[in-house]
Design a protein around this nucleic acid. Sequence first.
RNA 1: GGACGAUUAGCUCAGUUGGUAGAGCGUCCGCUUGACGUGCGGAGGGUCAGCGGUUCAAGUCCGUUAUCGUCCACCA
Length: 795
Amino acid sequence: MTEFEKRYDGLTVEKQMQKYWEENKIYDFVPDKSRPLYSIDTPPPTVSGSLHIGHIFSYTQAEMIARYRRMCGYNVFYPFGFDDNGLPSERLVERETGIKACDIPRSEFCGKCIEVTQRYESEFMDLWKTMGFSCDWNLVYSTCSSNTQRLSQKSFLELAQKGHAYIKESPVLWCTECQTSIAQAELDSKELDTHFHYIPFTIDGEVLEIATTRPELLFGVVCVFVNPEDERYKDKVGKMVKVPLYDFEVPLLTDDKVAVDKGTGAVMCATFGDTTDVEWVESHALPYKKVVLPDGKIAADVPFIAGLRVKAARKEIIRLLEEKNLLIKSEQLTHIVSVHERCGTEVEIIPSRQWYIDVLSKREEMLAAGDKINWYPAQMKNRYVNWVENLKWDWCISRQRYFGIPFPVWYCKSCEKPVLASIDQLPVNPLETPYHGVCSCGCSEFVPEKAVFDTWATSSITPQLNLDTAENYGVDEGFMPMSMRTQAHEIIRTWAFYTIAKSLYHTGDIPWKDAMICGFVLAKPGEKISKSKSNSKLSPQQLIAQYSADAIRYWAANARLGTDMYFDIQDMQDSSRRLITKLWNSSKFVLSHLQDFDPAYQPAQILPADRWIIERTNQAILDVSRWLDEYEIGLARKIVDDLFWKDLCDNYIEIVKDRLYQPDIHGEEERKSAQYAIYYCLLSVLKMYAIYIPHETEYIYLKGFKDFVGEKSIHLTQWAKPMEIDGEIIRFGEILKDAIAEVRKYKSEKNLSMRTEIDNATVVCPENLKGLFLASEKDFMACSRAKEVIYKVEG
RNA sequence: GGACGAUUAGCUCAGUUGGUAGAGCGUCCGCUUGACGUGCGGAGGGUCAGCGGUUCAAGUCCGUUAUCGUCCACCA
């Protein structure tokens, strides 16, 4: 054993250990058919800004599982990735450079994107390494690499050929700020103050009051709806209604969806105010009147407000209505509107030609897939089910943006029919590669598709990306479904859902067997930590530099899976430092008594106290394994904490101390028995803690255990696999602890030192355990400093 | 409006086959114990949100109410 420093210097040790792991390739993936594969589908973090403590929290929890599985004998395949294309990254680049994508040539903007995202990625990677992540960094992928482009385009072509991906002209959710179509999953809701404006339409020369929040869409009104049961309007249904200000007429129709008690019970249907309008246009075969343009301005042919932005147009219309005495009243109203999650802009619905992936018709299959996956914690499945059941739109995958994977598609110049690239020419950018061929209509001129894939369209194939990587290592058979997916609960509706959808199309099966759904770190109730808010001023880098990675990891493990936590720096510091120091000191003590230890020597007899702590350790190993098999790293950690702190340190070590120090009194064989026990128990505790605090445990292992064990890293050692637990010896230990506690209480109440000698101490035990106590008499006397032991048999 | 979770000691939370309420922090008292005072021992502190039910027995199971939180839906 090398000397133990007086104090453990985590910051220095962590750098040393990381270097040691890298040099010795401790975590490199090596194909090995003799061991079962455990493959992990980790979220490639979106490169949209710097990482915060929340990322550390959830990624670390999953990383611990990788370590656990490795120590259980699995060949762990744990690649990492970066999701570095698409709108989130574009917005980062726009923020960083102050340049808007639409203001410079596309190629130039994409160049800036690559530059910025690469800078962030190297920052991410450094951070993960500093945290001691046991990934194989040779397996890193990026979602904008040319290989990913190839696989993503291939995925699209396969779906298009099977008819699961299709193009159609249709109303689509549209962000006028980002000027692109978006998907249902990208909506956030926001509470907004607005006004309900009561406007007089006319029917039969009578006024028909209609309340609306969007008067700027008056020109787009195609009909008015009332509920078929509404007595007030029964005799008017089918007649024409005149739209004020514009003085054109539209029919009065009925639909069940209209709420009788909302507003005046009459609704104007404008194309398109909301999703209900879209449904109505379809179900009632209504015409479309364009009002809002993709850039958020009012169309040129709309009188009074042409060219204005939506909000200005609304103001202007209200001014006009008031001027012409056409505004009956305005009520203040707070309602929730859908906004684009990336920029907070209220979404519009605008018809355009977009590519979709069919999900609506596959609900049943997707729900069945949800049933087949093991969700941890189980109730997270509800979120998935809830989402699938409430789908309203097929998944729109085309984005009118710049830095993304191009659609491998061209269109015939005359008939607009799309033609697809062939798989062997991927990756392809149609803007750079013309299509050579002849359309079925005879035309030989083609225009390239300018849109790019939604980022999720690519990140949803991470299992396929991982498979591609695995294939390069000669691993493919049985790779799918992967062992597990880890992610936070907020992206169940996006990443988990899309991955399952794609997997069903590509493999006909689920993408992974288990889904480990982590919680979130919040600054305080309801407040998410985000880089745009000041609550994230403590960057992970600063936290690590100040408190060490092990401290943060240990804290991050203190969570119930799927449950959100609040970040409290004091709490993190206190609990982690305590444990790290305790582990250091106890290891120092134990190893100082193992100088002459021979792991090959089996003592003739293991004393009862030693048998007890060994059995307790085995019991803990079983409990910890059971929790970790369910991804409950927090509950598992608690088991180790209790074993280590209470039983091993506070009791067992105190019990055997004297035996270790004084073989002349207790006997040499008895000392060897104690050595046998402390060696096994501390090593087991270190192994269990290794997944949480990999640096310190490795450092202690290298100092004191490596020579005994042989493996060059604690992280390559295997967990013991205890058999059945001996309940009798556990009971013996409990009673022994009680007896010691009685003595301690006595001394405490008398304000005596624990070293004070006492005349006698009593052990109350059942008859069948008395033999064990008699065999432990010297231990008990040494620990209690009692000159005599009195036995009371009970039970 | 729908779904899910939470409600246990002053604070943060454990308590997974129903069987005498637990930990850490904080408080109070004590102990310089040949690993650790960044420690150790002890004490105090809880009608386990309310109500009802099942049971010999309920923090634990069922029903219901309340409060908080999250996801989804409400956009006329």
